[in-house]
């Protein structure tokens, strides 16, 4: 649009703003030759161009400056590095904990089996305690089950000389004997053991047939009312922590609880222990652990 008497202000502002082309500047100058009374107005527009007051300064600029030289490590970087390290550690620990501990719902306990043969019988020893020192489940008094109610089975047991049992145990078991997956699987597959919750029947058919089934039955009085599953104590948690560093083996399914637990025959069973358990073998520094969940 050409400059005219109605839009000349816009042209003048564009002129002082520097928005006009050379041709437009020439056009405006020609327009002013025809309207000299408007030149004073152009001068006023020129005066609206603000000039900074250079006497106004920010005093003590040095206070705004930062140290130069050396490596500047911001707090953000530290936080970033720390967060990265923490995340890696937490993920690693979490995975290992999960693998070794599973969940409380699964009632998994990692237990170390150390069997020491004493003069009279096997004593379960996870630290240095004898079996008598292990915690006893008194919370729910149970009626002691008489495994020798069946006279026939009782007779079979009695038919095995006590001295023979001891010799067998001495020969087959080391002072510290561990049970692992391979041996347990061997029990199950090669010998085709019909897993039964009754340790007496197991004893009757397979007593000492395999060296991993340590079922040295003695007398009825040695059936101690102990449940390992129900008594997860400080030692268990300590062993859980140790086991974090171990190697986790594969999961066995369909193995009875006491299949891998030679101490089981010493324990009082109830029907709920017929449940199939899943077992993981964990070997730490030569010791075998297993975790299990029903």
């Amino acid at each position: 649009m050409k400059i005219n008497i109605n839009n000349y202000e816009e042209w003048m502002i564009d002129y002082i703003e520097g928005n006009l082309s050379d041709a437009q500047v020439k056009e405006m100058q020609e327009f002013l030759t025809f309207h000299p009374e408007l030149k004073a107005e152009l001068d006023l527009f020129n005066e609206t161009k603000l000039q900074p007051d250079t006497t106004v300064v920010f005093e003590n600029k040095e206070s705004l400056k930062k140290a130069v030289g050396g490596r500047v490590v911001t707090m953000y970087s530290w936080v970033k590095y720390a967060a990265s390290v923490a995340a890696v550690v937490m993920v690693f620990a979490g995975v290992r904990w999960f693998n070794s501990n599973n969940t409380t719902e699964d009632n998994v306990a990692i237990k170390q089996y150390q069997y020491q043969q004493t003069d009279n019988n096997f004593a379960f020893d996870r630290t240095t305690d004898s079996i008598e020192q292990l915690p006893v489940d008194n919370t729910t008094p149970k009626e002691e089950k008489n495994y020798f109610a069946d006279n026939k089975k009782k007779n079979v047991i009695e038919a095995i000389p006590q001295e023979e049992i001891k010799e067998k145990i001495k020969r087959e078991l080391n002072p510290i004997q561990s049970i692992d997956f391979a041996k347990a699987n061997k029990i199950k597959t090669e010998n085709k053991i019909e897993i039964n919750s009754n340790p007496i029947e197991l004893l009757e058919e397979n007593t000492f047939a395999n060296n991993t089934i340590a079922t040295p039955k003695t007398t009825n009085s040695q059936l101690t009312n102990i449940s390992l599953n129900d008594n997860k104590n400080v030692i268990d948690w300590w062993q859980d922590a140790v086991a974090i560093g171990g190697e986790v083996g594969e999961v066995i399914e369909g193995v009875k609880d006491y299949d891998l637990n030679p101490i089981e025959p010493f324990l009082k069973h109830d029907d709920t222990q017929n449940d199939v358990v899943k077992t993981k073998n964990i070997n730490i520094l030569g010791f075998n652990y297993y975790s299990r969940k029903k």
Partner: peptide, 12 residues
């Protein structure tokens, strides 16, 4: 900016 300069000019 256009309005500002107009206002400033009117003031002057």
């Amino acid at each position: 900016i256009f309005r500002a300069r107009q206002s400033l000019k009117e003031y002057l």
